[in-house]
């Protein structure tokens, strides 16, 4: 464990807890894309298949349970909670799941480290995580209103993967056999997707104006 990875995990943890806390306290999911949240639940499910088979560390297991629990709770809140669901903007959140899931699945079946079920699912989760934010970014551009909690959520989510890239660079130089180009490419694509959001986020923060994404 290196500082970049710990910082990345903590940033990721804070991002999902900020979102869960927001939904739980103000009982609203305005501006949040259910599609993205469902895709993240799928990412964690397909990535953590080894949760019960390979024990790596208490930290690893606890964090996996927290990510699984929080992502499914967020989906439950938006779908089932009698108050929260009323604030879900389903007419704007229309990104088709299969436009994202199918290409990632096909890509995982074509490009992977080993052709085993767990390995293909793990690779699928990497590709899926890279693009899972798209419905949320589309929704933000459509609704154009970004309350600061949602802005912070997306920012932290992007920051976590950027920290992971630093972790991969660090491990590449400190652990000789640590080469995982699939992880790296998916992680870089994911961070680049956030790049334009980062740009507008910093602009709004620097000029101290409300965050507006160009249509």
């Amino acid at each position: 464990m290196n500082i970049f990875r710990l910082a990345g995990d903590m940033t990721h943890l804070v991002s999902v807890l900020v979102l869960l806390l927001k939904i739980h306290t103000i009982k609203s999911c305005a501006g949040i894309s259910l599609k993205t949240q469902e895709l993240y639940a799928l990412v964690f499910t397909t990535r953590y298949l080894d949760l019960f088979t390979d024990y790596i560390s208490l930290y690893n297991t606890v964090m996996k349970l927290i990510f699984l629990g929080s992502s499914f709770s967020i989906v439950w809140y938006i779908r089932r909670h009698k108050i929260v669901r009323r604030s879900y903007d389903k007419d704007q959140d229309t990104f088709r799941h299969y436009f994202i899931v199918l290409p990632c699945l096909v890509l995982a079946l074509l490009i992977h480290h080993k052709f085993t079920f767990k390995e293909v699912m793990w690779t699928f989760s990497l590709y899926l995580e890279a693009v899972a934010i798209l419905p949320q970014l589309v929704l933000l551009q459509r609704t154009r209103n970004i309350d600061n909690l949602t802005g912070q959520y997306v920012f932290l989510l992007g920051a976590y993967r950027a920290l992971y890239i630093l972790n991969w660079i660090y491990r590449h130089y400190t652990e000789p056999h640590y080469v995982h180009w699939i992880t790296w490419i998916a992680g870089i694509v994911q961070t680049l997707l956030y790049a334009d959001f980062f740009y507008y986020y910093f602009q709004s923060w620097k000029n101290n104006v409300k965050l507006q994404l160009p249509a």
């Binding site: 990875r5 990721h12 790596i56 690893n60 990510f67 491990r171 640590y178 995982h180």
Partner: peptide
Amino acid sequence: DNPSVSKDEL
């Protein structure tokens, strides 16, 4: 073969 190390990541 060595279990791919990045499996110890989240």
